[in-house]
Design a binder for these strands. Structure first.
Lengths: 346, 346
DNA sequence: CTGAAAGCGCTTACAG
DNA sequence: CTGAAAGCGCTTACAG
């Protein structure tokens, strides 16, 4: 093996074939290669064959970076969420991914851990990465974070929580879900219902608060303010909130918890207090909870159509990418009260 | 407002400032703008100021796509996992993300749903996107999927499951974890231990099988083959496996489940059969299970250091990106048997 | 210290 | 149908 051969080998091993290599090998221009491989124009069959053979032989993979720069668009969609350890978001992402993979988009994942600064940072990064679109669940102070994206005309849809921005939205009927859960508890003769809610700085918490309130009102009852506690959407948040509720001189006979993590925390607090579900206290959770049926007693929940939320979100984004002028969409998907064993039976 | 002004406005609204706009506004060359904004070379203070002012005024954001193409590297890392609805992976991703955000990388997420074809597709896409590195948990038939990536010299580290490839690896002590759990059950006088394992086509399942086997052997006992069932790493898999075990003429007195989803399924099956934990049957789960302490009885588990796995994986990748020549790393992080209430007490 | 110019790997009018 | 050439927005030797 000569010196030259060796260096060629080395080059072949560490370097990647480009469109020029394919063109040279096939004896055509790069334009023709591009036409053959990217589908577009008509190319004579024999040339096309030569190109395909050359591409295969060189294991040619088009460099997406170059294509992106040239056509000024990418095949990646940014997904911005507050927390990946929350099963609501993972269930949504799963559905989003299925639709997006179908449409040849990849997901760039941005997690901001309920931190406004990180949310801004992620949004700025995605702007720089020139994502084809953004799916986001905004935090409480998200106002400024998405401005640059909006200015740049990047298609966006907000998911689950409404954004104060002119973007498409898909969420669930939080008002109705909270209403249904509360009415169910009221019908079971509960009057002191502890309500563990997220911070009322995001739309989901506000809507749920209103739903609970309305259910009381419709039953000619009133909410007891000390029984609603706003706490972070976390396990610790739910735990602390439940502790507080259970320590009340007149403790609640039922607890309604705002999301899956809070519910987990509340359950832990209840178990620590040696209360028995549903005999001593009823529990309803609002959210996606894969473990609801594995609990004993199984947990009554307001289920959210996570997969549907994800699918619709992805579809709205795809539609918006295709047509930036279409009117703003606003979708609310129905929640469903699923009665299991954690509230007992009438 | 004149025609021209209007069209300028429109242009300003829909178009994004480039480095040329900044250069023009600041009265310097694009090279100088690049130097100022990308940190590099020395630039006279007054020029630098002018550049920064112009950039701010135009709300200039460098186009990462162009930079990427030019410098032949991206700021994104591909993360390839079988399933996002598995809390092990989300816990790992969270930690990965924290390290990677720190280092200014974003995560491109690839989910393959335990499907070899999708795994290949994702790997090919990430190759085309020119990711700076790949973190992946390979499936059973992953052999070919990562070849192109490897050929292209893309840094890779396999996470949790060993790959048959020359790449860095970080996982947990599955052998020891399964051993500890089994020994614990044996010490509690269990002899018929149902073991719900994943398919022995991936290293985690194989290692756990060996651990269980060794614990029996060290106690001068033998595993009962009918009591080990290989099933997918899903809720349904665990449910079906537990059903099968509980239907045995001589049913097991304990169940060891291989991951969080299988454990959930097994619990559901146990509840359906009206058996009481731990009185009638003991249960141990191996995996990250955020809900373990919210269960009643709380669940004895072999906990995995997910966060540490994620951090190490990200760090190994960063190190590999920096130095492609360093020797292959092989890290196994310790599991821990956490005894709670689901096996009763001695 | 600064600028003119080349070039990353594609796609796509524009000629022919 | 096909190719030569321009250009996407950057960075970086190379001169000066």
């Amino acid at each position: 093996v000569s010196e030259t051969d060796r260096s060629d080998e080395k080059k072949a091993a560490s370097t990647v074939a480009t469109i020029r290599d394919v063109a040279a090998q096939a004896g055509v221009s790069t334009a023709t290669v591009s036409r053959v491989l990217s589908g577009g124009g008509n190319v004579r069959a024999d040339l096309a064959d030569r190109v395909r053979q050359a591409a295969a032989a060189l294991r040619y993979q088009p460099n997406r970076l170059a294509r992106n720069l040239r056509v000024r668009e990418t095949q990646v969609v940014g997904v911005i969420i507050p927390n990946i350890e929350n099963s609501f978001f993972t269930a949504v992402i799963r559905a989003v991914d299925e639709v997006l993979q179908q449409a040849s988009y990849s997901i760039l994942l941005g997690i901001y851990y309920d931190c406004p600064a990180r949310e801004r940072a992620v949004a700025a990064t995605f702007r720089a990465e020139a994502t084809a679109g953004i799916l986001f669940t905004p935090g409480p102070e998200s106002a400024g974070a998405y401005e640059a994206l909006l200015d740049a005309g990047v298609p966006m849809v907000s998911v689950s929580r409404r954004a104060e921005l002119p973007v498409d939205f898909v969420g669930v009927t939080n008002y109705q879900g909270a209403y249904d859960a509360t009415r169910h508890l009221i019908q079971l003769r509960h009057r002191r219902i502890g309500f563990i809610n997220g911070p009322c700085t995001v739309s989901t918490a506000v809507d749920r608060h209103r739903g609970v309130e309305a259910a009381f009102r419709d039953a000619s009852l009133a909410m007891t303010p000390e029984l609603e506690v706003e706490t972070p959407w976390t396990h610790a948040g739910g735990y602390l909130a439940a502790k507080k509720l259970l320590a009340l001189s007149e403790r609640p006979t039922a607890i309604l918890a705002g999301n899956n993590l809070q519910t987990l925390g509340a359950l832990e607090a209840i178990h620590e207090s040696k209360l028995e579900i549903p005999r001593d206290i009823a529990v309803v959770g609002i959210d996606e909870m894969p473990w609801a049926t594995s609990l004993r007693p199984s947990l009554t929940t307001v289920t959210l159509p996570c997969a549907e939320v994800g699918r619709v979100a992805a579809q709205l984004l795809l539609d918006r990418i295709k047509d930036s002028e279409r009117t703003l969409q606003n979708v609310e998907l129905p929640t469903k009260l699923v009665i299991r064993a954690s509230c007992g039976w009438e």
